[in-house]
Amino acid sequence: MALLEVRNLVKTFGTKTVLDGVTFDLEEGQTKVIMGPSGCGKSTLLRCLNRLEEPTSGSVRFDGKEMTAPTADVRALRQLIGFVFQNFALYRHLTVLDNVTLALRQLKKMPAALAEERALHELARMDMAEKRDAYPASLSGGQSQRVAIARALAMEPRVLFFDEPTSALDPVMAREVVTLINRLYLENVTILCVTHDLYLAQYISDSIIFLDQGKVRAEDKAENLLSGHADPVIASFFGRKS
């Protein structure tokens, strides 16, 4: 049984079908990247998986539990999914340290000292421990994203979702963040990553899910997708990109 099993996921906004029967699996320890043209439904897919958006139909099984069931404890399941946003989404009124400890203290009911220890460990992993007392407004984009990743990791999630983690960053900062994601990849953290970043897709993935018009058009290893694919849509997408 895969950690995450997505079956026939459909999402419509009014008359517009954004996800049109998406099916895929994510195994424990695997890293998959979701790519595709703008508006293909990548971000919506990610947000449907932890029900930030309500899927219209289909099923999402996470760790053997039906995420879309009416009885599902969505909040408990969300705690097992670390979510990293494009725009970092750090809590502006909290210091770096408090951003990381908030969920530990409030949701895991961890004693403050223990939460702090855990948070500092994760911040150190992201090379951000020295900024523990800074407020988000004083951080660069790259630093913010590293804190956001530390915040997600501190909860010891079963999987990390990345929603375009480098899109809001300039190339140098993006590289910094990619390096850290690579570190997680090498440690076999389970990752599902929506991105436009070819470097991320090529080197930090076990396979790429190519999404087009709400459907999985192909799922394959990077080397098979990236160079001269038989499907003209995929070939032209990567051809244009590289």
């Binding site: 979510f83 989404a89 750090l90 809590y91 009124h93 908030l102 969920a103 409030q106 949701l107």
Partner: peptide, 29 residues
């Protein structure tokens, strides 16, 4: 920032917790 509230939701906070821990402290400031 809407994504900030969404981040709290994604972390597994309840509506009441989001109000108490994120919305209220920011809005009051």
């Amino acid at each position: 920032l809407p994504t900030e509230l969404e981040a709290a939701k994604a972390q597994g906070f309840s509506r009441g917790q989001i109000f108490r821990l994120v919305t209220a402290p920011q809005v009051l400031r």
